[in-house]
């Protein structure tokens, strides 16, 4: 009986401790998942043509370069009115990989050499390493198409959710 109570106490204790640790790491902004961010103009303008890419997936210098060349955006004209462009650029920079306080962003920022300014998330060393087991023919499946289509496999990508456990690769 005493032993059961003791076991129970240890169990409760460890669960509580885990909770505390998780809450603590979250408080210090070291959670692994990307933080929830919102900006109405970003959400509307940057999701018309592609996945709504979370600002914490690229460093500041990448977003600045992307936002200063919207009239030639990966071969398309994605020009915005100056007010929207400024607001979205500031939002992206403020929440970029080198400013966001979470482990995933920190890894992206650290793994990207200082002299390189990737314009595609799929060009960051972090992305390449994370997807090294994905074969070329998988990327080309009709329901996927290309690495730009995050939501094909990461259902919550628009909200910054890339949890391994929720990946579903379409056939």
């Amino acid at each position: 009986m005493t032993r059961k109570i003791l076991q129970m106490a240890v169990l409760i204790g460890s669960v509580t401790a885990t909770g505390w640790l998780l809450a603590d790491s979250h408080k210090h902004g070291e959670s692994k998942s990307l933080p929830q961010v919102s900006n109405a103009k970003w959400a509307a303008e940057c999701s018309s043509c592609h996945t709504l890419y979370h600002p914490g997936l690229l460093p500041e210098r990448s977003w600045s370069k992307i936002m200063s060349g919207l009239d030639r955006h990966f071969g398309e004209n994605a020009g915005l009115d100056p007010l929207a462009q400024k607001e979205i650029a500031e939002f992206l920079v403020a929440n970029s990989a080198d400013h966001a306080q979470n482990r995933r962003s920190a890894k992206i920022a650290q793994s990207t050499p200082a002299q390189s300014t990737p314009l595609r998330i799929s060009e960051t060393p972090w992305f390449v390493r994370k997807h090294d087991e994905v074969r070329n023919d998988v990327w080309k499946r009709p329901k996927i198409g290309s690495p730009a289509n995050c939501t094909a496999c990461h259902n919550g990508a628009d909200k910054g959710d890339f949890a391994e456990a929720r990946i579903k690769i379409p056939r």
Binding site: S48, C49, F74, G145, S146, A148
Partner: peptide, 11 residues
Amino acid sequence: PKNAGQTRAHK
């Protein structure tokens, strides 16, 4: 034009 289309980024 009654069909849904697809962008080059597969959206």
